[in-house]
Amino acid sequence: MTDELNSPGYDIPPEMDGQVAITTLDKVYNWSRRNSIWPMMFGLACCGIEMICAATSRFDFSRFGMEVMRPSPRQSDLMIVSGTVTKKMIPQIVRLYNQMPEPKYVLAMGACASGGGPFKEGYSVVDGVDKFIPVDVYVPGCPPTPQALLHGLITLQKKIDMQSIKNVRWYSKDPVEAIPIPVLGPDLMDPREFELIKEYSAEKQVEEGELPVVDEA
């Protein structure tokens, strides 16, 4: 790792070799971030148990600097969505995501979080957490083994390596908008879609012929 960090492609004069290290800001910055990712401590379902297993002695993700699981979103860098996301739970998940400070990442662990999984056809399951919050890494499996989760985390590290201070979201000038929190109505409602929902429901009413269409006059 240090070798990689210290070889930015600049020539170091031979007399300074071994005494001075030249690197880029991006590399140092990313190197420190990628090795101290603090995940948020919350498990949603079965996958959460495999996440705990990844923290225990056999798999031990502290080897990657991730052992500091934080119960508070304010202190965490990574949200591992470990399990089925239900309609009743998604408002809380979005709120937690909004509460995490930048830089923040989301890892969708398992089939459920990625796309609904075995319960997708159910009436109260969100078919993928990415319908509401942006996801960085998807880990397939039901449940993914701890090894698979580790692989996902390493993939996230690689993603971090590729970022640059120049264009990351959290240093851009424009304010970062919080994601509107979904509302539990007769079904789950995204506040951004209120108009659409109204139109749809009105159309449905006409189709069902519940109300006479008003064009008598």
Binding site: G185, Y200, S201, K204
Partner: peptide, 19 residues
């Protein structure tokens, strides 16, 4: 129509909804 797992009753107006 919403490209996700939702459906709403007919004649429903979210603006009038009180959780």
């Amino acid at each position: 129509p919403f490209n996700k797992n939702v459906d709403y009753p007919e004649g429903f107006d979210p603006a009038l909804w009180e959780p």
